[in-house]
Each structure stands twice: as structure tokens, then as C-alpha cells.
């Protein structure tokens, strides 16, 4: 991933000017989280535009603030009305009718003065309503909860896909960047002749990426470790993520000087010196 080229491509301008597509917007957001340089550029651009807008500000007519805040107050009242309506529909508030004490006495007297049939009918109606509201509220809540968890699942799925897209974008950027020199690592004849992987090494920025073509799936207690051979000595370049090993593309530790690269299978977490009998692939620069 060449950051300078990405910044120069004009996509950040499109992001800030609102002319980028929703997909491009998400891409920029992902990239700015991964690369501090992109984030910094984005922040600086926005600050500069804000400063320019302020320097070219035009004060609106004074009456406008009142007009606008009257409109906002109306909105707030509508919101409040909406909330209380929802609360009633929710059934959580129940039905509460507080009458002043005097009226209450009069009302009780009136009801008892008639026959207690009224009371029974009234009570059963109230009971029916409250049972109904209870059932309705349980049903609504469980529906709401399942919608919420569906939403959370969908969000996670999108997030995972975004990560794949970003990784693939990075892979394309590295592979198509001429500063990255591919170093093919072939399977060791006596160990695993089918295995193969490619190193993309930028000798200027010293960045190292690995693309795995084929390696046997390691057991849970083992992990592949990448080495560079520099002036006859092995240098640890980091552990290879065992997840989706068949199509893995991963950034490794940087190195400026190397004559060869190799992968060994080691205990999980890695070792300080490679186990030569466990070497799977190797390739010279």
C-alpha cells in the first residue's frame, strides 16, 4: 500500500467534498483507521476547509436565528408528543388515573349507590385491558430484541467484509507497486514440495508482505514463522496468521537487508532460532 499515491489519487478530496460514492467513503474511513498518515491528511484538509469557510463567512440576517429556533422548538414538542404516545403504546406505563380525593369519594359513592354489577363489569374490562397490554408488550419487546440482534449480526458481517475488502485493496496496491520486488519461495523437496509462497519486499521502505499460495494447515499448537537470511544469519520477520492460511496476505516485520527468505513451522508464538528440519519453503532474492 503506497500511502503517498493513495493520498495523491484525489479520493480524500472526493471524501471531503461529498462527491465520493458510499463505498469509497467507507474505504477512506477504513484506510484512515489503518494509516495514521491518511488520517492526518484528512484531518488537516478538513481543518483548512473549515478555516477557509470561516474566513469567508457571511452573517445571516439577525431575525433568522429566532425563526430557526422556533422551528426547532416545534420539532422538540413533536418529539415529546411522539415519545409519550410510544410510551402508552408500549404498555409499560400502564394506565394510571389519579383523581383528586374529593372527586374520588364522590365517584366511589356513585358507583356503590348503583349496583356492584357496574363494579364487576368495570373490573373485568380493566383486567382484560391490562392482560392485553401485557401480552402486546411482551410480543413487541421480543420482536424488537430479535430485530436488534439481526441488526448486530448484519453489522458484524459488513465489518468483516469491509476488512476483507481493505486487505484485498492493500494486496492489489502492493502487488502492482513496482517498488515491491516479488521473491518466490518454493517448497523444500524433502519436506513439502507442493508448498509455495511469495514475498513482496520494498527495499526502499523496507516493508515486507507475504502471500501464501499453499502451505499445509498447521495443528493448533503450531504456527508458521517467517525468516530473512541476512549475511548468513536468520532474522525473525514475525508469525503468520493461521486463519485462512490458504489465501493469506499479511504484512510482516520490515527488513532492509536480506539475501533469502524462508518459512519454518514452529511452536505457537515463535522461537528465537529457526528449526532447520521444519523448513517448508525458501527462496533467494
Amino acid at each position: 500500500m503506497n500511502i503517498a499515491e493513495y493520498i495523491a489519487s484525489g479520493i480524500l478530496e472526493q471524501y471531503v467534498s461529498g462527491t465520493a460514492s458510499p463505498q469509497e467513503m467507507r474505504e477512506v474511513e477504513c484506510m484512515s483507521h489503518i494509516y495514521p498518515e491518511i488520517k492526518l491528511e484528512l484531518v488537516e484538509m478538513q481543518n483548512a476547509l473549515e478555516a477557509l469557510a470561516i474566513s469567508e463567512a457571511k452573517t445571516p440576517p439577525t431575525f433568522l436565528k429566532n425563526v430557526i429556533f422556533t422551528a426547532l422548538n416545534e420539532l422538540q414538542n413533536e418529539d415529546a408528543a411522539e415519545i409519550s404516545k410510544e410510551a402508552i403504546q408500549d404498555g409499560n406505563t400502564g394506565l394510571r388515573m389519579e383523581l383528586p380525593p374529593v372527586e374520588k369519594e364522590q365517584l366511589t359513592a356513585t358507583i356503590f349507590n348503583r349496583s356492584d354489577t357496574y363494579l364487576k363489569v368495570a373490573a373485568s374490562i380493566l383486567l382484560l385491558i391490562s392482560v392485553g397490554l401485557g401480552v402486546y408488550s411482551i410480543a413487541t419487546n421480543s420482536k424488537l430484541n430479535s430485530t436488534r440482534s439481526e441488526l448486530a449480526l448484519a453489522r458484524n458481517e459488513i465489518k468483516a467484509k469491509e476488512q476483507i475488502i481493505v486487505a484485498r485493496g492493500e494486496q492489489i496496491a502492493v502487488v502492482s507497486n513496482l517498488n515491491f520486488k516479488p521473491v518466490l519461495m518454493k517448497g523444500i523437496e524433502t519436506k513439502s514440495p507442493e508448498s509455495a509462497a511469495t514475498i513482496y519486499w520494498n527495499t526502499i521502505s523496507q516493508e515486507v508482505y507475504i502471500s501464501i499460495a499453499s502451505l499445509p494447515r498447521p495443528t493448533d499448537d503450531k504456527q508458521y514463522q517467517l525468516w530473512a537470511i541476512a549475511d548468513g544469519k536468520p532474522v525473525d520477520l514475525g508469525m503468520i496468521d493461521s486463519k485462512n492460511i490458504a489465501e493469506s496476505f499479511q504484512k510482516m516485520k520490515a527488513i532492509g537487508n536480506a539475501q533469502a527468505f524462508a518459512i519454518t513451522l514452529e511452536k505457537k508464538g515463535g522461537v528465537p532460532q529457526p528449526t532447520m528440519t521444519e523448513m517448508y519453503v525458501m527462496g533467494g532474492v
Binding site: 473549515e50 470561516i54 469567508e56 452573517t59
Partner: peptide, 19 residues
């Protein structure tokens, strides 16, 4: 939906946006 916050927002940004 704090009204004081909206008032602050208006006082500080309305002219830039209006421009």
C-alpha cells in the same frame, strides 16, 4: 437535543455555512 448546544452551534457555525 440540548438547546444551549444548538444555540452555540448556530452562533459559531451559521455564518460559515451561510457563506
Amino acid at each position: 437535543k440540548d438547546e444551549a448546544a444548538f444555540s452555540f452551534l448556530y452562533d459559531h457555525y451559521s455564518a460559515a455555512l451561510y457563506g
